[in-house]
Design a protein around this nucleic acid. Structure first.
Lengths: 155, 155
DNA sequence: CCGGGCCAGTCTCTTTTCGAGACCGAAGCT
DNA sequence: AGCTTCGGTCTCGAAAAGAGACTGGCCCGG
């Protein structure tokens, strides 16, 4: 049970990873972004064991990343991304950029184009003040409110 | 062994996930970006079992994401990010943005500031043609070279 | 009103992976 | 020689994953 406790650390990279970092969870979300909503569709698209899928969908619902509800028209339940879930899109797109660059010898299998535009979606890391593009080397970490709070808790 | 075969699919999100998507791998990389290079440092920072760490570092080296080499000065080996590894930074920063937004009730624990600038690093998804900020709804997927290649293979 | 299909979800059993901690061998110091 | 540090390995019990069969609701055609 040590692993789950990593989520208590005051780190905004660690906490999402503890929630999302296993074999299937991000793959399930990728399907959700591709428009998949039904249990069987997730299952057959990914080949994930049904009991595993059940568990993962449940956790995503618990985290407020998906909602489960009786489908708008028919009766079968469907799983839809919440706002919180939607906000994960840049994570998947960042993975996609990396995959296209480093794991796609024959070129990108799919282009994620801007609709009605010849352009393509790209993730960029930039400074929100001067707008300059940044890399890991340009980073200066600095304590924030959440860290102070966590420190106070410990004491 | 079905799971690993997902990496054969022509999808630039799936392929990275099969390589990186488990409990520890991305956490190890997060440490690497924080400057950690030594076996024991990874181990004690994360609390990962030693045998697990050994396995994960080995895989990352196999993927060309880390290099293992006798440390520049002393004799102990060190693990360093390659170019390919460095390119994963936006993935971790995208997770960080999401974590700050949705899993940091007390505010961001750490600000990743632009050095010598009051600004902060932010991931954005934008069109590489018109520059407009994009969301999942603005995407129009389109077959690319890698998909055609994969299709030819199947036939 | 009966049988089939389809669907979401559950149960069972086997295999794989994980985790904890002891153990090992190679420096490096005293 | 004896102790420490460090990277790395080994063993073994516990947890999670995988496959596949099974259940039960619902709808449809007959």
């Amino acid at each position: 049970m040590r692993y789950e406790q990593l989520a208590d650390l005051p780190c905004s990279i660690t906490r999402p990873l503890v929630a999302l970092g296993d074999r299937w969870t991000l793959l399930v979300l990728k399907e959700a972004f591709a428009g998949v909503r039904r249990f069987n569709a997730f299952q057959s698209n990914l080949g994930i064991p049904r009991s595993r899928l059940q568990d993962r969908l449940g956790r995503l619902v618990d985290h407020g990343i998906l909602v489960r509800r009786p489908a708008s028209d028919g009766e079968h339940p469907e799983y839809r991304l919440t706002r919180k879930g939607h906000d994960l899109y840049p994570v998947l797109m960042a993975l996609k950029d990396w995959g296209d660059t480093h794991m796609a010898p024959g070129g990108p299998p799919v282009h994620y184009r801007h609709r009605d535009c010849p352009g393509e979606a790209r993730v960029t890391l930039a400074c929100d003040h001067c707008g300059e593009v940044m890399t890991a080397h340009d980073i200066r970490p600095e304590a924030g409110a959440g860290l102070v709070a966590a420190g106070a808790e410990d004491a």
